[in-house]
Simulated scan of single mutants.
Amino acid sequence: MFKVRPTLADQIRLPGGKKVGEAVAAADAALDDQRASAVEGLHLGVERLEALCRERSEGGFASIYPLAANLAGTAGFFETGPFYRAVYSLCELTEKLGAAGRRDWSSVDVHVRSLRLILTTGFDDGPEAKAMLDGLSSLVRRVEAAP
């Protein structure tokens, strides 16, 4: 029998390299460099959602979930607090509406307006944001409870 020793185990023991804390700090710095671009993408995504809400077309409704999911992916990667929770709520809402074969543009519009407000306030996570998120959750629960 031969005991196989992975080369990674040998490499970890070599002197030099970065300590875990240094690697995490470097990763955080790299993310900070991308944050402005990501926030710009969030603004563009919300603008597209606003346009879909104005159009209120059947095909536009089908576009909401993929767009919201894309925004959630970006928002979840960066610390956006209430924005992530609001866009996730929009994903839940459109998923439940789609499963029920319903279109509720008013509830979608409330979510999109909330996203715009959160962007405008710089992702403030204060009591106002909590109240707004509670309201969005109640819209999703209302859809769940509807026949």
Score class of each variant (00 low, 15 high):
Ser37Leu: 09
Ser37Tyr: 09
Ser37Gln: 08
Ala38Asn: 05
Ala38Pro: 14
Ala38Gly: 13
Val39Glu: 14
Val39Ser: 10
Val39Asp: 13
Val39Cys: 12
Glu40Ile: 11
Glu40Cys: 12
Leu42Thr: 13
His43Leu: 10
His43Pro: 01
His43Cys: 05
Leu44Asp: 04
Leu44Ile: 06
Leu44His: 03
Gly45Asn: 05
Gly45Lys: 11
Val46Phe: 02
Val46Glu: 02
Glu47Met: 13
Glu47Asn: 15
Glu47Leu: 14
Arg48Phe: 02
Arg48Ser: 03
Arg48Ala: 04
Arg48Thr: 03
Leu49His: 03
Leu49Phe: 06
Leu49Tyr: 05
Leu49Lys: 02
Glu50Ile: 08
Glu50Lys: 15
Glu50Ser: 14
Ala51Tyr: 08
Ala51Val: 07
Ala51Lys: 15
Leu52Met: 13
Cys53Ile: 12
Glu55Trp: 11
Arg56Glu: 11
Arg56Ala: 12
Arg56Ile: 09
Arg56His: 03
Glu58Arg: 15
Glu58Ala: 15
Glu58Pro: 12
Glu58Ser: 13
Gly59Phe: 02
Gly59Gln: 03
Gly59Ser: 07
Gly60Gln: 07
Gly60Arg: 14
Phe61Pro: 04
Ala62Glu: 07
Ala62Phe: 08
Ala62Pro: 12
Ala62Met: 14
Ala62His: 10
Ile64Pro: 05
Ile64Met: 02
Tyr65Cys: 08
Pro66Leu: 07
Ala68Gln: 00
Ala68Lys: 00
Ala68Cys: 01
Ala69Pro: 00
Asn70Glu: 05
Asn70Ile: 03
Asn70Gly: 13
Leu71Pro: 06
Leu71Trp: 03
Ala72His: 04
Gly73Trp: 01
Gly73Arg: 10
Gly73Phe: 01
Gly73Ala: 06
Thr74Ala: 12
Ala75Tyr: 06
Ala75Cys: 12
Ala75Lys: 08
Ala75Asp: 04
Ala75Pro: 11
Phe77Ile: 04
Phe77Trp: 03
Phe78Val: 11
Phe78Ser: 08
Phe78Thr: 13
Glu79Asp: 13
Glu79Cys: 09
Glu79Gly: 13
Thr80Asp: 00
Thr80Lys: 12
Gly81Lys: 15
Pro82Gly: 07
Pro82Trp: 02
Pro82Ala: 06
Pro82Met: 04
Phe83Leu: 14
Phe83Glu: 00
Phe83Pro: 02
Phe83Gln: 01
Phe83Val: 08
Tyr84Leu: 14
Tyr84Ser: 12
Tyr84Phe: 09
Arg85Ala: 03
Arg85Glu: 02
Ala86Thr: 01
Ala86Asp: 02
Ala86Pro: 06
Ala86Gln: 00
Tyr88Trp: 09
Tyr88Lys: 10
Tyr88Cys: 09
Ser89Arg: 14
Ser89Cys: 08
Ser89Glu: 07
Leu90Cys: 08
Cys91Ile: 01
Cys91Gly: 07
Glu92Met: 15
Leu93Tyr: 08
Leu93Ile: 00
Leu93Asn: 12
Thr94Lys: 00
Thr94Cys: 10
Thr94Pro: 06
Glu95Asp: 15
Glu95Cys: 12
Glu95Met: 15
Glu95Ser: 11
Glu95Tyr: 13
Lys96Glu: 06
Lys96Pro: 07
Lys96Asn: 06
Leu97Thr: 11
Leu97Gln: 09
Leu97Trp: 05
Gly98Arg: 11
Gly98Lys: 07
Ala99Thr: 10
Ala99Leu: 10
Ala99Pro: 09
